[in-house]
Design a protein around this nucleic acid. Structure first.
Lengths: 112, 112
DNA sequence: TCCATGATTCAATGATCCTTGAAATATTGA
DNA sequence: TCAATATTTCAAGGATCATTGAATCATGGA
């Protein structure tokens, strides 16, 4: 992930509604959720959810796919993982000895 | 880290100058850097660097400490580590099996 | 074809953010 | 105290972002 994409990702995640969307899509998994379902769950208007979905899509954090009348959105695990790595590189790249204790055994790293 | 702080952190990191500042401070380590040194290295005016430093400070991503005439800024490794964990929880919390491969052995996790 | 559903687009408004330069504050040394 | 250094604060501007409701587009069923 380059700086450009990281900046866009940070901007996308800095808005409450969009953070909620990403969270819901991550929990929803590969099946994703429709724009309407997201709007109802979060409690915003269709046009508003559409606006924020476009922002997230433009940042590359989500994907979409039409399914009959609905459009199904899914989280981009690659992009989210890439952003985690980007942050880690910035933090650990400089001073691993200092940063390591700040990140105590995250769930992803103890899979084995 | 709660949502409020995460949103503020994302907003703070979504601006190029501020991302540069954080990077430099991380690399600088505990010794930190003065506002003037940051302004010169990045190539912005004193008032501009001051504006962005205040934003980062407000988000809790950096700390400061006066040293004679200069004010020395340092990166908050706790806050940065907390943000990494926050992102990981959002990603891994939902579907560890899906997210784990997206985050291949980050540097911090292979210290031993 | 006609209608209903699901979603996006558009224009307008208000809010927030970024930049700039001038003025103000704090610290140190002569 | 006076001047120089380092930084912040302030006000004004332009730019970007978020919200709203109406209009538009796409799809599927009667």
């Amino acid at each position: 992930m380059d700086d450009r994409q990281a900046l866009a990702s940070f901007a996308a995640l800095s808005q409450e509604t969009r953070l909620q969307i990403v969270r819901m899509l991550v929990v929803a998994g590969p099946g994703g959720m429709s724009a309407g379902a997201l709007a109802e769950k979060i409690g915003v208007s269709p046009s508003n959810i559409s606006f924020h979905l476009k922002e997230l899509d433009h940042a590359g954090l989500i994907g979409q796919q039409r399914e009959s009348r609905s459009i199904i959105y899914t989280a981009s695990y690659d992009a989210l993982g890439g952003l985690v790595r980007f942050l880690m590189d910035d933090c650990c790249g400089g001073h691993p000895d200092i940063c390591a204790p700040a990140i105590p055994a995250p769930a992803c790293c103890v899979t084995e």
